[in-house]
Design a protein around this nucleic acid. Sequence first.
DNA 1: TCCGTGACTTTAT
DNA 2: CATAAAGCCACGG
Length: 111
Amino acid sequence: MREPGLLDERILVVVDAVPVGRLVSYGDLAVIMQMLGMPCTARRVARTMREFGAGVPWWRVVRSDGTLAPAVAQPAAERLRGEGVAVDGARVPLVQLRWQPDLDALSQLMR
DNA sequence: TCCGTGACTTTAT
DNA sequence: CATAAAGCCACGG
C-alpha cells in the first residue's frame, strides 16, 4: 500500500475543511491545488480519495455534474442525506451547495 | 524513458 | 434523459 505523498496530504487537508452539508467536485479540488502551486488533475484527486480518503469527509466530493461516483454512490448518498443534502437518485445539487474555500485561510492550513 | 491506468470532465450522439 | 468517445495528466511499474 502506497504511502501518501505531499499532494495527497494537502488534498486531504482541503477535503477535511469542507463544511457539513457542502460539496466540492474532483475538478474543483484539482483547481484549488493548482492555485496553491501544485500540479493536480481531477483524476489525481480521485485517486487520492480512493486510496486515502477514509479519514476525511470523502462523501462531500462529487463529480462535476453533481452525480456520485458509482463506486461509492450508495454509502455516499446515505451519509449526504444524513447531513441534510437532498439526494435525488445518485445526483446532488452541486450548484447550490458548492463550497468555495477561502484561499488565505487555506494557505494557512498548508503551513 | 515509456506506457497503461483511472472515486474525472467535456463534448458529441 | 442516457451513452459513448475523446481529452486529460499525474503516477507507479
